[in-house]
Design a protein around this nucleic acid. Structure first.
Length: 214
DNA sequence: ATCCCGAGGG
DNA sequence: CCCTCTGGAT
C-alpha cells in the first residue's frame, strides 16, 4: 500500500472518530494501568463499573500492594479471569512500590516486567498515560488493519511493526484509537457493516468480497 | 456457540 | 504455533 493510500484511510478514520481517547475511565498512570490489566477479555463498560469502587478503595499503588487477595477479588469478580487479575494487580502494585517508588514506569521493558502486563497493555499505558507514541494491537486493530490492507500479518506483533512503518509516528496514538473504534462500530468480526462504511473503495477486504461473490 | 480494546506458559 | 484462564453479553 502506498503512503498516499494509507494517509487517505487515516483521514477518513479521523473524520469518522474525532477526538480519540481511551474508553477506560481513569485519572493518572496508576489507574490506567489497573484498568488496562482488568480489561483483558472484558468489556470497557464493565471495567469502568468495577473501577468506580476499586479506585476509591485502593487509590495508590501502596494501598493496593498492602491489600489481600480477597479484598481485591471482592471488587473484580464480575470480570472474567478475576483470579489471575487479582493476583496480578497486587503483585504489580508491590513491584511498583518496591522498585519504582510507587509510580508507574514509563518504559516498555519495565512495564512488561509487571505481571499481567503484556505488549498490548504496555503500549496502551505508554501512549495514553505518558504520550509516548505506540500502537497497541488488540483483536480489533489486528482484524481491521488486515482487512483494510494497512497490514498483512499473521501475528499482532507483525501488525504492530507494519503499522509503525506505514503510519507517521505523530499519528500512532490516534490511529490506534481510530482502528479500535472502527472495529467496534462497523468493521466487526462477525458481521461487518460494509454497506455503511466510507472506506469501501480503500478496503482490501471489501474489494475482494465484491470480486469473489459477484 | 462465540466474542470481548490479553497474558502467560508449553 | 498451541493451550488455558473466566464472566457476561448477544
Amino acid at each position: 500500500m502506498t503512503t498516499k493510500a494509507t494517509l487517505a484511510i487515516l483521514k477518513i478514520l479521523e473524520n469518522l472518530y474525532p477526538n480519540p481517547k481511551t474508553a477506560l475511565k481513569h485519572n493518572g498512570p496508576f489507574q490506567l494501568l489497573v484498568a488496562t490489566i482488568l480489561s483483558a477479555q472484558c468489556t470497557d463498560e464493565r471495567v469502568n463499573q468495577i473501577t468506580e469502587t476499586l479506585f476509591p478503595a485502593f487509590p495508590t499503588a501502596h494501598h493496593l500492594a498492602a491489600a489481600s487477595f480477597e479484598e481485591v477479588a471482592a471488587h473484580i469478580r464480575s470480570a472474567g479471569l478475576w483470579r489471575n487479575k487479582a493476583q496480578n494487580l497486587i503483585k504489580t502494585a508491590q513491584i511498583l512500590v518496591e522498585k519504582h517508588g510507587g509510580q508507574v514506569p514509563n518504559t516498555r521493558e519495565e512495564l512488561e516486567a509487571l505481571p499481567g502486563v503484556g505488549r498490548k497493555t504496555a503500549n496502551v499505558v505508554l501512549a495514553n498515560a505518558f504520550g509516548i507514541p505506540a500502537i497497541a494491537v488488540d483483536t480489533h486493530v489486528f482484524r481491521v488493519a488486515n482487512r483494510l490492507g494497512l497490514s498483512s500479518a499473521a501475528t499482532p506483533q507483525e501488525t504492530e511493526r507494519q503499522l509503525m512503518e506505514a503510519i507517521p509516528k505523530e499519528k500512532w496514538i490516534d490511529a490506534h484509537h481510530w482502528l479500535i473504534r472502527h472495529g467496534r462500530a462497523l468493521c466487526k468480526a462477525r458481521s461487518p457493516l460494509c454497506d455503511q462504511c466510507p472506506l469501501q473503495e480503500h478496503c482490501r477486504y471489501f474489494q475482494e468480497k465484491q470480486t469473489s461473490s459477484g
